[in-house]
């Protein structure tokens, strides 16, 4: 037995350590990849939260890029990302759609009055059925759709400045979404 082969067990041990290190440092451990990625956004028909007699369907979302944000008043993380959503709404031309997920409509209306409404459409999904169509398992979750209505990006968790700069902004640019430069400088 050669001397070098004595180090084989040590090598195996180190590779197990490395595997564990990599495995446990993947921060996406509890984030599932969306089954919808690169697929068309599902057909739906939902009631508008602010105009309960109006139905909104997928047809309203076609023709330009859309940011679909799943939120609720019971979700503290949604509160923390709200300011960033307001900035995105003010600084870009993207169509913003909010899905009010498993929520009490009155509370949601009050929330939007109190903190501001970044959304062009707010869908009332009080029983969570639209959420199931979207593969939502918590809030907040955010989808970016291209003009053809295909999901090009999904984020599970809050939209913060880091996510905006590193993940959303490059995709907004790729989709030719207009940015208003004036306010874009001083976020």
């Amino acid at each position: 037995m050669s001397r070098a082969s004595l180090f084989v067990p040590l090598g195996i041990f180190i590779s197990i350590l490395a595997l564990g290190y990599v495995g446990f440092s993947l921060d996406a451990r509890n984030q599932l990849p969306s089954a919808l990625l690169n697929k068309p956004f599902p057909e739906f028909s939902a009631t508008s939260l602010l105009q309960p007699d109006v139905k909104i369907t997928k047809a309203e979302l076609l023709g330009r890029p859309v940011l679909v944000n799943v939120w609720a008043t019971w979700c503290p993380t949604c509160k923390s990302e709200h300011e960033q959503l307001m900035r995105i709404a003010a600084e870009t031309d993207v169509l913003m759609v909010g899905v009010d997920y498993k929520d009490i409509p009155e509370r949601a209306v009050q929330w939007l009055e109190q903190y501001g409404n970044p959304y062009d459409y707010v869908l009332d999904d009080r029983d969570g059925s639209l959420g199931i169509e979207l593969g939502v398992y918590g809030a907040p979750e955010t989808f970016l759709l291209n003009a053809a209505g295909e999901v090009v990006y999904k984020r599970v968790g809050d939209i913060n400045v880091r996510i905006w700069e590193n993940e959303l902004l490059p995709r907004f640019q790729a989709l030719d979404i207009k940015l208003h430069e004036q306010s874009g400088v001083d976020r």
Binding site: L32, P33, S34, A35, L36, E133, L134, G135, Y137
Partner: peptide, 8 residues
């Protein structure tokens, strides 16, 4: 369920 939530 798989179409919506993936293989997971």
């Amino acid at each position: 369920l798989r179409e919506r939530y993936g293989d997971f």
